[in-house]
Simulated assay, not measured.
Amino acid sequence: MAIELFVFYFLAFIAVGSAALLVAMRNIVRSLFLFFLTLFALAGLYVFALADFVALAQVIIYVGGVLVLMLFAFMLSNKTLLNDVKEGTFGLPRWPALLVVILLGTIMGYTFLQFASAPPQWIRDAEQENRIITTTDNTVHYLGVNTMTRYLLPFELVSVFLMMALMGAAHMARKGGKS
């Protein structure tokens, strides 16, 4: 087995396994850390799909920003919330999560079987026009140039979104301290 295939299956196993544990976990702190692991594994899978920009955005926005702010908001929350977590009053029924997993598994299995029989038309068109990205292409240079030119507005909008999330976390922490 090639090392690339082994790393891909390892990342896929980490992503799916930690996501399944995340749904089944009743402890919010552990769920947040499992979410962190899921997002990192997903970023690794994006790298394998040669989607460098999406992987970079995944790490910067979700792992680096939103998840850390969720963690701080949880840690700075009031003590009654933490006591409720210890007692397990935040439990949700597990059958909706199981239904979603079965539905998504069915969709993924059907898609896998469709791709295994014949590649879609857009892939065949890209192969004929020689527009396929290979692993030897230097996409990091294009990533940096596009981030600061073509995608500058979305990049700045993400920074404003993160600033708003930080202000919300600070407001939650201050509001919890007064009561």
Rank of each mutant, 00 (worst) to 15 (best):
F33C: 03
L21P: 00
F6G: 00
A49T: 07
G17I: 06
T80K: 14
L32G: 06
P93G: 04
F161S: 01
L103G: 13
T80F: 02
I3P: 00
L98S: 09
F10D: 03
I28V: 14
V140S: 12
A57T: 13
L104V: 15
R124C: 00
P120G: 02
D137M: 10
S117Y: 09
Q128K: 14
Y151L: 09
S31R: 15
R150M: 11
M75K: 02
F72D: 00
Y151E: 14
D84Y: 08
K178C: 07
T38L: 09
K86D: 12
N78E: 13
F40C: 13
G105D: 06
T80I: 08
S117C: 01
F13M: 07
Q121V: 09
Q114A: 06
F6M: 04
L166I: 08
Y110W: 12
L152V: 11
E129L: 14
K86A: 14
G65V: 05
T135G: 02
G88V: 03
G17H: 01
V145Y: 12
P120K: 13
E4Y: 12
A165P: 01
K175T: 09
L162K: 00
G176T: 07
V85C: 10
F72R: 04
L37S: 14
G44F: 04
L50H: 10
L81R: 03
V63P: 07
T135P: 00
A169H: 04
F8N: 04
M167H: 07
L92Y: 07
W95S: 08
T139W: 05
T136C: 02
I107Q: 04
G105C: 10
A165W: 05
D125Y: 09
I14C: 06
R26D: 08
R174I: 09
